[in-house]
Amino acid sequence: MSIVKQLIINADEELRYPSLSEINLLQNFCQTGANRIRIARILADNETRLVQRGSRRFWKRRPITPSNSGNMRKTNSCQRDQGWYIRLIAYCVLAGNSQPLDEIGIEGMREMYQSLGIPLGNWVEALICLKEEAIALLENEDAVEVIPYFDHIIQALVNPGPPYRINDGWAEY
């Protein structure tokens, strides 16, 4: 969900037109638009390079991992997923928030990798390596737009938040 959609939904709930401050938000969002498109293009053009270099870095640190086991299928799946996360980050850069990542790539990510038998610690390390490669690739001001999304994925793995079973009332033991 982009900021544009959010402000329209908020306005519609109150049967009103977007307020001046909401319109200012939209204007700012559009003014930074060209820059965000440029950054998304850089990510798209460099996806393979980031994944290749990130993987080499990753295997040096964690040599014993499914993607480095010699099974090409596992290697390809791991690198495909890394590429996909870069793609989702490019979507987020375009949308200006982390909603695309949350909806497509983060909700249920932990559970999925656990069920696939992927060592989560290694996956976190692989993402950290990707992030380091992205920092090396991008100019400082571009990195500022991109890196928070890498951190967002890493945080979702490291601090998964409350488990699904939690409710709002007091827990009694």
Binding site: L20, F29, C30, Q31, G33, A34, I37
Partner: peptide
């Protein structure tokens, strides 16, 4: 198309106001 949309942001904002 996205670029065009972002470029027309001011126009859309003013029209809405």
């Amino acid at each position: 198309r996205l670029e065009e949309y972002f470029r027309s942001g001011d126009l859309r904002a003013k029209a809405s106001l």
